[in-house]
Amino acid sequence: MVATTQAENEQDEQPVITVKGLVNRFGSVIVHEDLDLTLKQGEILGVVGGSGTGKSVLLRSIVGLKRPNGGTIDVLGSRLNELNEQQRSQVERRFGVLFQRGALFSSLNLQENVALPLIEHAKLSRKDAEYLARIKLSLVGLPAKAALQFPESLSGGMVKRAALARALALDPDILFLDEPTAGLDPIGAAAFDQLLVTLRDALGFSVFLVTHDLDTLYAACDRVAVLSQKRVLVADTLENVANTDDEWVQAYFNGPRGRAAQYAANASTSGLKE
């Protein structure tokens, strides 16, 4: 199924996100300078980079939480900084964002968390919205009884899953994930990677995935973009990125952890072929 989606990508010429010449500054500190990046329809793009290279800032400027200091961002055929507030809100409804620590609303239980955008944006009745919310929670692998629990009583893995269900509430075209597997145990993280690929294949959204997790890159991502020196150093398939002649990229992908993840990924694919 992954193969078909990739084949479809190559036919699809119109990328869902095009970032051109992006500039982001905080005071005199320049985070991004002349940064270009594209996200293609239906792909999972992993965004990696050392701490402080502005991965999260890039995510925040695309979803509209930070106004860029320069450059253009085209999302789903419209230029974000040229839209008025209402048009912008229309575009933003087609985004699903999973924040680093889940950011579930602590005063609502899980089904209310997921139902909120359905009630507010899709104008469903509370009963319908909560029914759909429970389907979404089941879709991300949470048991039915979790629907009435409050975020504070959940484990880290459940919070991430519930946050994913909320991000999927309105069937977004683009899903933004900020370090979704950080803080999960390896089994939970692997299950999350698998879940992401399954849902992408079923629902057909594109994914902008900020991560530090090498295993996620090998297990889930179609392409990888490396942020370094205030721009995107390289954005390509994993093999091509790993062969890029750059000190940081080499240390990242061919260091001990990178090799371990590569070995694990190869072992699991050859295992599948048998």
């Binding site: 199924m1 048991p143 079923a202 057909g204």
Partner: peptide
């Protein structure tokens, strides 16, 4: 078609577990 088929199957699977939770 393939894509919608996967979606429908996935949702059907999700609805296999009992969904009604009444307080």
């Amino acid at each position: 078609p393939t894509k919608q088929q996967a979606l429908l199957v996935r949702v059907a699977e999700a609805m296999e577990t009992p969904l009604d939770v009444e307080p």
